[in-house]
Amino acid sequence: MYVCICKGVTERQIHQAVAEGARDLEDLQNRLGASTGCGTCAEFTTECLREALEQFAPETTLPQPA
């Protein structure tokens, strides 16, 4: 499923980036360009990142949304 339409980033790409070491939204922005266009997908991108971290890097935690 596409997460970031502006940059064409998919959930699969986010999971792959996490498997390769991405640990935060900034990492995904630098590696994939996710959430650097209009920014509307930032929340969903972070949600997908959190899921991928739970799968690939359970020792890493993100701050919970307010």
Rank of each mutant, 00 (worst) to 15 (best):
V3G: 01
F44K: 11
E54P: 05
N30W: 12
Q29R: 15
L28P: 00
T61S: 15
H15I: 07
T60N: 12
A17M: 02
C48A: 12
E11N: 03
V9F: 01
G21R: 12
E26M: 07
V3P: 00
E26H: 08
C38H: 10
G33Y: 02
C41N: 03
A52F: 01
Q29N: 09
I14A: 00
Q29D: 10
A42V: 13
R50M: 09
Q13P: 01
Q16M: 11
E51C: 07
E43C: 09
T46S: 08
A42R: 10
A34H: 01
D27H: 07
I14N: 00
P63Q: 13
E11Y: 02
G33P: 01
C4Q: 01
D24M: 05
R50E: 14
A57N: 09
E47L: 14
A17N: 01
L32T: 02
G33Q: 04
S35L: 00
Q55N: 08
T46L: 05
E11S: 05
T36A: 08
S35A: 15
C41D: 02
R12P: 00
A19F: 11
S35V: 02
T36F: 07
T60Y: 12
C6E: 03
C48L: 09
L25A: 08
P58L: 06
T60L: 13
T61C: 09
Q16C: 08
F56T: 04
Q55V: 13
T36N: 08
Q29L: 08
S35Y: 00
T46I: 03
G39W: 03
T40P: 05
N30E: 14
L25T: 06
V3R: 00
R50G: 04
S35F: 01
R12V: 05
R50W: 12
G8Q: 07
R50S: 15
G8M: 07
C48D: 03
V3S: 00
T61L: 13
L49Y: 02
Q29Y: 08
A22C: 15
N30F: 11
H15D: 14
A17L: 02
T46G: 03
C4M: 04
G21E: 09
L62V: 12
D24F: 04
E26K: 07
Q55F: 11
H15Q: 14
E20R: 15
V3H: 00
N30K: 15
T60R: 15
V3D: 00
F56Y: 15
D24R: 07
E54G: 11
L32V: 06
G21T: 10
D27P: 05
E51F: 06
A19M: 15
T46D: 03
V18S: 03
E11W: 00
Q13S: 05
L53A: 09
